[in-house]
């Protein structure tokens, strides 16, 4: 068999693959939003005073961090419809995007919760007492004093979590969603696999470029946000 590689065609493949970028972006943004909201709730629960809620939150975090994303996808995409069918609910016609977004949202929410918990605990709580001493309510103190500092502390970890989430969007192809990777697979299938190498190199480069951009964005944000008080966080 004659192998002929045409690396000059990689940019063309990148352009073709990028037509699926909006789908990847949609998965990323919606699951990011879900993971942040859910993560905040779980973090609040794990930091709370009610032992039952603390235990549930910790259990949730432990489970979601311990289970591979692909397993969770199969659980939701293949397992959940079975259970619901037993209850007389048919979800087999639901959009496949639902399953991938739900999976990534749930899975990432555990990492987000851990990030938020750690960042919250890293803020010196003497400042909370000072806030109370000037007459602030707990919610005001959190909004004005604790949250802004915790956010600054969390930025690098937030960047990491977003990068991981972005890479995991590539699992969307397993349920048949045409994201970047799904598109790449479609392209190779159309040419009977002749351009596999070029296509996947193009796919890898796209992921890499976006990750570098996210990383730089995170560093920039951290620099801007903690300007003038870098030492305060240490």
């Amino acid at each position: 068999m004659n192998y002929s590689y045409d690396f000059a065609s990689i940019p063309d493949y990148m352009i073709k693959i990028m037509t699926a970028f909006p789908v990847t972006l949609e998965i990323l943004l919606i699951s990011l939003l879900i993971s942040l909201l859910l993560g905040a709730a779980v973090a609040a629960g794990s930091l709370g005073r009610k032992p039952v809620i603390v235990a549930i939150s910790r259990g949730y975090i432990s489970f979601m961090r311990g289970i591979p994303t692909l397993v969770l996808i199969f659980l939701l995409y293949l397992g959940l419809p079975q259970i619901l069918q037993g209850c007389g609910v048919n979800i087999s016609s639901w959009n496949k995007m639902f399953f991938i977004i739900a999976t990534l949202g749930l899975n990432t929410s555990a990492n987000m919760a851990e990030m938020m918990r750690a960042a919250y605990l890293a803020v010196d709580k003497g400042q909370l007492e000072a806030a109370y001493s000037v007459g602030m309510k707990g919610t005001t103190a959190f909004r004005r004093i604790i949250y802004p500092q915790a956010f600054g502390i969390a930025i690098p970890m937030l960047g990491n979590n977003i990068i991981n989430l972005f890479k995991e969007t590539s699992l969307a192809f397993t349920v048949g969603v045409i994201d970047i990777l799904g598109k790449a697979r479609a392209i190779t299938s159309a040419s009977y696999g002749a351009n596999k190498l070029e296509t996947y190199i193009a796919t890898g480069i796209i992921f890499w470029i976006v990750c570098v951009a996210l990383e730089q964005g995170s560093k920039y944000l951290e620099g801007v946000y903690t300007k003038g008080r870098k030492q305060a966080a240490s």
Binding site: D124, Q127, A130, A131, Y132, S133, K137, G152
Partner: peptide, 19 residues
């Protein structure tokens, strides 16, 4: 809250708002 509004406190470790 009312009580706290009538008092103010200076702390051993200053406890200034770092942000």
């Amino acid at each position: 809250l009312e009580l706290r509004k009538k008092t103010a406190m200076v702390f051993q470790n200053y406890n200034l708002f770092a942000n």
